[in-house]
Design a protein around this nucleic acid. Structure first.
Lengths: 251, 251
DNA sequence: CGTACCGTTGAGGTGAGTCAAAGTAAGTGG
DNA sequence: CCACTTACTTTGACTCACCTCAACGGTACG
């Protein structure tokens, strides 16, 4: 009872509740402020507390698969998750990175459809699962939660970023520059200054999937950005000497 | 008082209510069943009835512009509207066609942001406008409406279709085939049979914007589909001899 | 010290963008 | 009804960004 259950043991929606590393209430969770739940009042928070099911995931494991039926939403407490899609031709396209405090799985839930994407864990993660039934209860008790999820859906960066990241009209160079700026916003805790350093949370192949191109092109485009002194790469470490210049590139 | 006000006279959110061609209540509107409002009870329907503002739009007029602040949602009663975006490089990308019974403008409203797209009228249209304030009232009175809009946002075909329509990995041929199938679903009232005929509701340039390619490529790809007996085009009229073959193309 | 994965580099082919021009349809005014 | 303008569509020629295949250097791990 004192450990987080690993995903291997409790794959799927049936994970049991666990004590260790799990804050006494969701309101005291490190990511609370960033989540939709932050709008909930005391009573609803108690419901949430007993509704959540914490599961630890290792790299490569999945929260859910494309075409799986939806059973609830997933709230990322710690780690990193990528949402990707496979088309019938075998192309893999990623459209979203999930950072701590963000939720996923809601689209299919509210749509009443099966999952349109696969959620794969990129870094060891702790994820709370909230079942559809529990979510229904909380949404019924406090309409603020519905409104909060409306906002989440409306501001979903997936479709929004897609316009820039996956626009076939735009060259790979601009799409990559745009992704670097988005990631900088997520990976830096301090406000963005003129010179920015951060560690890329993903491999090259994920970058490729996110901007809709091939790994080789990513590699070549990185070189191109370096030649133009827009960004420097050392493994996964990025140095952007002048973020304004990079923003100008995107437009 | 007996005519629908034209958009020229009442541009923007301030349009007044009008009698002619406007059904006595929204519940008796031809598109009622297809809308989010269909979930409303009698009392809320009365609110909606007095909240709606009907405006007639001519081809080329806009419901709202990209970067405009959001004032409410638009419910298309009749006609056709396209949602498109302009990037800083001047590329025009369309991501949605709005058919009668569908609403638009909600993303920015729920996100609390300005519009991300421009809504342009492609065919003479009648559009009911419902202000944010009125929508708030109705959503407060009946939580079913929030749930209905959650579903609308979750099933928004824009992002969903984008995966196929705008995927740079997929050749223009497949993206066009996919668009033809989507349009067939909207343009046919009867169930889809093996052989399908319908009239394209849009010009070539809109097709190009929807699948993220150029007009010339659309033209050439159409020729290609004809050569392969997958679809035949005469002006805006489409004949798909075997819809199964076309679906197979998409995968 | 192999095995496996990741990242980079090179060479070659091609889908599709761009530019330019001709053909076609639709709308306007005399 | 016909000249004329304007918008839409098609076709051709050229170019290029990027995909694919293939090989090679690095790094991690058992």
């Amino acid at each position: 009872m004192n450990e987080i259950k690993s995903a291997n043991e409790t794959k799927g929606a049936g994970a049991r509740n666990h004590g260790n590393a799990l804050p006494s209430s969701c309101a005291s969770c490190v990511v609370w402020e960033k989540t939709e739940w932050a709008c909930l009042n005391k009573a609803a928070d108690d419901v949430l507390k007993s509704a959540r099911r914490l599961t630890a995931y290792q790299v490569g494991e999945t929260l859910f698969h494309q075409h799986d039926p939806s059973h609830g939403v997933y709230c990322l407490m710690e780690g990193l998750v990528i949402l990707k899609q496979l088309d019938t031709f075998g192309n893999e396209t990623a459209f979203r990175l999930l950072f701590p405090g963000q939720t996923c799985g809601w689209r299919s839930l509210f749509a009443g459809q099966s999952h349109m994407a696969t959620a794969v864990v990129l870094e060891t993660s702790k994820v709370c699962f909230i079942s559809t039934a529990d979510l229904e209860i909380m949404m019924g008790a406090d309409s603020a939660l519905s409104r909060e999820f409306l906002k989440t859906l409306a501001t979903d960066p997936g479709p929004a970023d897609a316009i820039l990241l996956r626009n076939a009209f735009l060259p790979a160079r601009i799409r990559l520059a745009h992704l670097l700026l988005i990631l900088a916003g997520h990976c830096l805790n301090k406000p963005i200054e003129n010179e920015v350093r951060y560690r890329l949370p993903v491999k090259r192949k994920h970058i490729a999937a996110l901007i809709g191109t091939s790994v080789e092109t990513v590699s070549r485009t990185i070189r191109e950005l370096e030649d133009d002194s827009l960004a420097y790469f050392d493994q996964r470490n990025v140095l952007i000497p002048d973020i304004g210049k990079l923003q100008q590139e995107v437009g």
